[in-house]
Design a protein around this nucleic acid. Structure first.
Length: 292
DNA sequence: AGCCAGGCACCGC
DNA sequence: GCGGTGCATGGC
């Protein structure tokens, strides 16, 4: 990774297969703020990072070499060869080729799995704007103050211990709605070691999924998101309404059950299913496939 | 006003 | 196991 240290900034002059807008807006993460075109602030790993981009020139602001190496290279998955992944997927069929080319700057972030779990529990039957607001409220109330930029205060996502302090009623007061008992259940099972998030990185994938589904409010779709976005399990294929719509449109040409789509996709895309899903999801959502 | 939002739990069969 | 329904809340 060739980068230039410039004061408090890290600069990369020709960063390929990287588009900060695609990466943050593609639906995999929620804690980011757009201040201008390709000028974003994001919160992760108890840090505030500002990223700006002009074509292939990317600047990571207000950080340092150590932090960049220890946190951001992994977080942005900078060591993975996305060119190769995209080539493989593009060769599979013309539909995927289109989605990959349209959303060519996506990278799958390596997010903290605990935050990913709660975020995607909140995501069910919800829209992205409101998911973001709810996560902000949780962070402000239960997380730790981590700093200020442009007189806006930022808070880390609460740890399991911090969030365990919240009762179901506390959470309902923050307007998470019917998801409140799900969050309480997630905290409880993890504190009591009924579910071990660290094991999900290496367990047999079906077992990992079963493990997550023990948590109330976690079904197949949320489990897949947690495994893909939080545990580097790229063989999963989170199948939600958007993915259902675009898969039906491209591959089935008729109303098809999510389970059938999921089975087809994990077989067809194999170990790259998670990447394929994200290109397809973002593309479908932008295109409003199957919607008026 | 009613429908929808990156689903899921719960129920009846 | 499979399909239908309710769910908190807010934007449109």
């Amino acid at each position: 990774m060739e980068y230039i240290v410039n004061g408090n900034n890290i600069l990369i002059n020709r960063l390929r297969d990287f588009d900060i807008e695609h990466i943050l807006e593609c639906g995999q993460c929620f804690r980011f703020y757009k201040s201008d075109n390709k000028d974003y602030i994001l919160i992760a790993f108890n840090k505030i990072l500002r990223v700006t981009q002009e074509k292939n020139k990317v600047i990571f602001h207000d950080t340092n070499e150590q932090e960049f190496n220890e946190i951001w290279i992994k977080y942005f998955d900078l060591k993975r060869n996305y060119k190769e992944i995209k080539n493989t997927l593009s060769t599979l069929d013309k539909y995927l080729d289109k989605a990959v080319n349209e959303k060519s700057g996506i990278r799958i972030l390596q997010q903290e799995i605990w935050e990913t779990l709660i975020s995607f529990i909140l995501s069910q039957n919800n829209n992205i704007n409101r998911i973001k607001i709810l996560i902000e409220r949780l962070s402000k109330k239960y997380g730790t103050y981590i700093g200020e930029q442009n007189s806006i205060k930022y808070y880390s996502f609460p740890t399991v211990e911090q969030l365990s302090k919240a009762s179901e009623q506390d959470l309902r007061d923050l307007k998470v709605g019917f998801r409140a008992p799900y969050i309480v259940d997630a905290c409880f099972r993890i504190i009591n070691e009924e579910v071990n998030l660290n094991e999900l990185f290496t367990m047999e994938i079906q077992d990992a999924k079963k493990e997550l589904i023990k948590i109330k409010g976690v079904g197949p779709k949320v489990a897949d998101c947690v495994l893909l976005f939080g545990a580097k399990r790229y063989e999963v294929f989170p199948t939600d309404v958007w993915v259902k719509r675009i898969m039906e449109y491209y591959y089935f040409d008729k109303d098809t059950k999510i389970k059938e789509i999921h089975e087809f996709a994990t077989g067809y895309y194999g170990h790259l299913a998670g990447f394929a899903q994200q290109y397809l999801f973002y593309y479908a959502r932008d295109l409003k496939v199957g919607k008026k």
